[in-house]
Design a protein around this nucleic acid. Sequence first.
DNA 1: CCGAATCCAGTCGGATACTG
DNA 2: CAGTATCCGACTGGATTCGG
Lengths: 105, 105
Amino acid sequence: MEMNQLNSSYIGAEYTMSIISGKWKPLIIYHLRQGTKRYGQIKRLVPDASPKVLIQQLKELEHDGIINRKSYPEVPPKVEYSVTAKGRSLYPVLDLLWFWSHQKL
Amino acid sequence: MEMNQLNSSYIGAEYTMSIISGKWKPLIIYHLRQGTKRYGQIKRLVPDASPKVLIQQLKELEHDGIINRKSYPEVPPKVEYSVTAKGRSLYPVLDLLWFWSHQKL
DNA sequence: CCGAATCCAGTCGGATACTG
DNA sequence: CAGTATCCGACTGGATTCGG
């Protein structure tokens, strides 16, 4: 599949965008990129996200196979989030999005 | 600026996404990529977009410097839309978004 | 031909309080 | 500690009608 001869319009670009669009998703992925983190850590790293929204975005990322949720049956509860292989394949995409925005034209 | 050592989180990725997120924007850019088009042509190429929304997305793309609007003072009116240099710099981004969505993992 | 104006439904994120 | 539950305002896109 050639990158310099794309044909079938941009149907599919929307799909990728739907996965990473969500107010806190890029930031969540960025932090998890540095390593596995517990829920409380993420909450502190993304303090402006309300618990409802934060959990919601984590669930969506998990549902889309971008991150993995591991729950430990302990008291108190412990939950760890990490990036999956599919999620790591997203790094170049996010990097390019970031790069474009910082580009001077 | 190194692509393999991004630091300042992903602030900026959201900015790029905000520019191309909009229900018909990728499709509009795709069609304009084939060459300058009149409003009526775009309307026919993106038939499911209502006139209000279509004009709205075209205006946003114009405001963000992605496309150019050229109006000819004729009767009947004639308006042409084309992609700017900044818009063309967006092709690799859209291509990568498209490519990622078609990738098998 | 190229839009503008109005009204409307659905989705998204935020604030706050509460729970196993 | 790691979430749920409820309510709510803002924004986005859609349907339709009208105008220069």
